[in-house]
Design a protein around this nucleic acid. Structure first.
Length: 422
DNA sequence: TCTGGGGTCCTAGGACCC
DNA sequence: TCTGGGGTCCTAGGACCC
């Protein structure tokens, strides 16, 4: 059996842990740059406030409904996430963190030990008591069915946070109640085709033949179909060893000169290098992107994209920045206003399995020693206390975060003061 | 004025080989 | 007049997830 534990309205719940006065009230969380609505409390959902729409369009509506707004605070959400995962991991031997607010749990063999339902409810209660974050737990014979079960657990209070689909009868009933477009793996595009073929529920889909599904929805559709039948065949990749690493941001204003764009791109490159070292990988290739504002159809559109392969794989900040600056220079063309840029590093290899080159001119050992010293100084004194000159000091490109809360759990200056009542 | 960020996987089509 | 067939590899773009 697989379990899926999912935090309810995760970002909103994180804010509420430190703002208990907001429980039961409508709250929304904005994406980076205060761009779109990305997390809504149940009260906000009940007001028919749509998810994913630009904030500036909804501002009057939110104000008139007295909705509390937060900029996203990833220092807080990331830390709360690891607290939740740590608690969950005390209850199962194997888990796969799937996203910031979800984890798959391995329950194989657990059903022989006693009542799995009691155990599931115990997990849900423990997480909420220890972290303040409400969660839903679904358990079934495949990951797709476990996700479905967790949605039932979230939707119907009678489940008290945990739902098991552990018999064929329950599976059939669940499939018949479940909208096909809510199935894990069915997105916008597939939903349209499903509608065309008259498939409304997960059950309708499961009643098609395997070959029909393969023909109309390719191997990915077939996998989902098998999972709905209770045959596990989707294994999410471990998040620990990524195959590529991406850092990108939109800018609050557009940037139209090469000099202005260099600085954010250098910082994105530095961020990728740091993430590489965290997962003990080196990259073999680096891509640079920059895009004009796609939402503004009145101005000329352009996507700058340049790629390079490295002679020797690297995780060194200076080296990756230097390649990125080269690529940006080569791909540059005047006359565009860039709204977004990013760095992708890929072709990742473990840092201790590097294929060296006969023609390499860099002293790799010295390079690594220097990087280690810089990392340890920054670790002790704060990110970017020592940085590469190209990363600069401009704040032109920094994110807009007008409604950000404190870093309650990761910054000493933001710790709450608790006073006893007289 | 204003529209997120970070991933994985699959497929079609082109380049290239013999 | 008339120009093959089979294979691999790479890349861009799209679909999907949260």
């Amino acid at each position: 059996m697989f379990g899926l534990i999912d935090c309810n309205n995760f970002y909103v719940s994180c804010e509420r842990v430190f703002r208990p006065d907001l429980r039961g009230k409508p709250v929304v969380i904005l994406s980076n740059n205060d761009g779109c609505l990305i997390s809504l409390s149940n009260e906000a959902k009940a007001m028919q406030i749509p998810m994913g729409l630009p904030f500036y369009q909804l501002k009057p509506l939110l104000a008139s409904n007295r909705v509390t707004v937060f900029s996203s605070n990833y220092a807080l959400y990331g830390d709360m996430s690891s607290r939740v995962m740590n608690i969950v991991n005390q209850f199962v031997p194997i888990s796969e963190i799937y996203s910031i607010d979800e984890s798959f749990l391995d329950f194989h063999g657990f059903d022989k030990l006693g009542d799995l339902s009691d155990y599931a409810h115990h997990i849900v209660r423990s997480v909420e008591r220890s972290t303040g974050i409400p969660v839903s737990l679904g358990i079934a014979s495949t990951r797709t069915l476990a996700k479905m079960a967790s949605k039932f657990a979230k939707k119907y209070p009678a489940y008290k946070g945990a739902c098991l689909i552990d018999t064929d009868e329950k599976r059939e009933k669940a499939l018949k109640l479940f909208d096909i477009s809510d199935v894990w793996g069915v997105g916008r595009r597939m939903r349209v085709s499903m509608e065309y073929y008259g498939i409304k529920t997960a059950w309708d889909f499961s009643q098609k033949s395997a070959s029909w599904v393969r023909d109309h929805f390719t191997v990915t559709g077939l996998r989902t179909w098998k999972e709905l039948h209770g045959h596990p065949c989707i294994t999410p990749d471990s998040i620990e060893q990524k195959k590529s690493i991406y850092t990108s941001r939109s800018f609050p204003k557009t940037l139209s000169s090469l000099e202005l764009l260099k600085e954010p791109v250098a910082n994105f490159a530095a961020s990728c290098a740091s993430k590489l070292r965290q997962q003990h990988s080196c990259c073999q290739a680096i891509d640079v992107f920059a895009q004009t504002n796609r939402c503004n159809q009145n101005e000329p559109q352009y996507t700058l994209r340049r790629s390079t392969n490295l002679v020797v794989p690297t995780q060194n900040t200076a080296e990756i920045i230097s390649s990125a600056m080269d690529l940006l220079q080569k791909g540059w063309s005047d006359g565009y206003r860039f709204k977004r840029a990013g760095i992708l590093v890929w072709g990742l290899v473990p840092e201790d399995e590097i294929q060296t080159s006969f023609f390499d001119t860099v002293d790799r050992l010295a390079q690594r020693r220097l990087q280690n010293v810089v990392d340890s100084i920054n670790h002790k004194n704060g990110d970017n206390k020592i940085k590469i000159a190209a990363q600069g000091f401009s704040t032109e490109w920094h994110l807009r975060k007008e409604y950000i809360s404190h870093q309650y759990t990761t910054n000493f200056d933001d710790l709450l003061t608790v006073r006893a009542k007289d």
